[in-house]
Structures are given as C-alpha cells and as structure tokens.
C-alpha cells in the first residue's frame, strides 16, 4: 500500500509540473511555432531584453508588489494585533469582513472596483491597482500574522507586565521580536499575491499602465511567441522563490504544530 501511495503522489506531481516544465522548455526552443525537434536557443530571452513593453510591465509589477507588500503588511499587522489580542464587541463580524477579498471570485471584486473607481472619479491606473492589490493582500497578512500570534502565548506579555512593563512596552519588547518571522513571512506573501494578481489588474489597468500578467494575457489572446514562455518562466521562478522563502518562515498547512 505504501509504495502505491508514493507512486500516486509522484503521478500527482507529474501532472502538476509537466505543463509548467514543458512551457519553460519551449522558451528555450529555437522555433517560433514551438516546432520540434527541440533546438536549444536563448533567442527568446535575448528578444525579451529588447521588448520594452514587457520589461516596463514587469517593472510595474515589481514596484506595485513592493508597495503593496509594505502597505498591506503594516495595515494588516496592526489589525492583527487588535484581532488577536483584544476583546471587543463585533470582533467576529470584523473577522468575517476579511473573507470577501479572498473568497468572492476576483472577477466580481474586479468588476465592482472598476465600476466604483470609475463612478467615484478614482479612475484606473497605478493608484487604482495599488488600492485593489493592498485590499486583496491585507486578509492574507492578518491570517499569517494571526497564526504567528497564536504561537506566542499571551502570558509572555503578562509576565512582562508583572515585571513592570506597560502594555506598550511589553508588546514592543516581547511580542514584536517574536512576531518578526511571521511579519516577514506575511510581507513575502503579500508580495507574491500582488505579483501574481491578474484578474483585478486586468480591470484596473490602462493601456498605458499595465502589469506583467495583464500584458501576458493580452499577448496570449493576440497570438503568442516563445517570448511569452520566456517572460512567464521568469515570473514563475520569481514567485516560486518568494513562496519558498515564505515557506521557511511559516510552514503552510503545518501551522498546528506551532500553536
């Protein structure tokens, strides 16, 4: 039974990774029409260097992800402090209010943002993308930092207070240092969420200001070349790296051990 289970898991991994690996390989194939036999070439990566549109979009994506990461982490961590360590009325409602950005299909959220931003005069473009991305990343930050809070026993702060710390001093001298890994993890996570975000960006981008995923989508729809494989490979490896670093801080799906 054990070997059957392992075989099945390997088959699952093959299913998950085959298309990705094929896509990556095709970025190194000489033929523009993805024709085989495979001839190794870096011409598509060279072409990438000269593709101003893709490079600009990529730069935009990184800048937006950085700003989103900083803002969402700051805001989400603050909210997480209140939600994890304070008792007040309406708390469960506030926790519930974190779910829509995660749980409602982004198509609905994205089109709603488009309508509201247009109607209210906020408009589209970089600032609109930032508003949207931060809103999507905040719930994840609250979740990740909240998990971190659960690993820190509340009586550590009580111990500090019994030794003469005010609550504020106790938070900064005891809780915050222990929370750093979670906050850093949350920042990475927010970065990845923003970097990979397509749907919201798609509705809020303008022809003059796009992100990489939006640009890739329009290229795919127009008819694509292996250049798209090349930039996709870069994007994929980039977000995989960020997520793997995140996994070192907070093991996904394995949080219970730390509680």
């Amino acid at each position: 039974m054990k070997s059957l289970g392992r075989f099945y898991l390997i088959a699952t991994l093959v299913f998950l990774y085959t298309p990705i690996l094929v896509m990556m390989a095709m970025g190194f194939n000489e033929s523009q029409l993805y024709e085989l036999p495979f001839t190794f070439s870096t011409r598509w990566y060279d072409a990438l260097w000269n593709n101003k549109i893709l490079l600009t979009a990529g730069m935009n994506s990184i800048i937006i992800a950085l700003i989103t990461s900083v803002v969402a982490t700051a805001l989400g961590t603050m909210a997480s402090v209140a939600l994890s360590r304070r008792t007040f009325r309406g708390k469960s409602l506030l926790q519930l209010m974190l779910l829509p950005p995660i749980a409602i299909p982004w198509l609905i959220t994205g089109t709603a943002m488009l309508i509201f931003f247009y109607w209210s005069g906020i408009g589209r473009g970089m600032h609109a993308l930032l508003i949207g991305h931060v809103a999507l990343a905040i719930p994840y930050v609250v979740l990740v930092v909240g998990t971190g809070f659960r690993t820190i026993r509340a009586d550590l702060e009580e111990a500090a207070m019994s030794l003469g710390s005010t609550p504020v001093h106790a938070f900064f001298s005891v809780t915050l240092p222990l929370l750093y890994p979670s906050i850093l993890g949350a920042a990475l996570f927010a970065f990845a969420v923003s970097l990979d975000q397509f749907v919201i960006s798609y509705f809020l981008a303008t022809p003059g200001y796009t992100t990489l995923p939006v640009q890739i989508y329009s290229s795919i729809r127009k008819g694509f070349t292996p250049e798209i494989n090349a930039i996709s490979t870069v994007l994929l490896l980039g977000s995989m790296t960020v997520i793997l670093i995140f996994a070192r801080f907070a093991k996904p799906g394995d949080t219970r051990d730390k509680r």
């Binding site: 007040f88 829509p100 809103a135």
Partner: peptide, 24 residues
C-alpha cells in the same frame, strides 16, 4: 487604541471592496 489599530485596514477594505460591491 483598538479603533486606531483597526481603522486603516477596514477603511481600506471599505473603499476597495465594500463600496465597490454596493456601487455595482
């Protein structure tokens, strides 16, 4: 302090998610 901690997040979510859904 609780309100001060929560305001930015929920203000942001209101502008970015809840008002848009209502407008839609």
């Amino acid at each position: 302090s609780t309100t001060a901690l929560l305001m930015p997040t929920y203000g942001w979510l209101t502008i970015a998610v809840f008002l848009p859904l209502l407008t839609m």
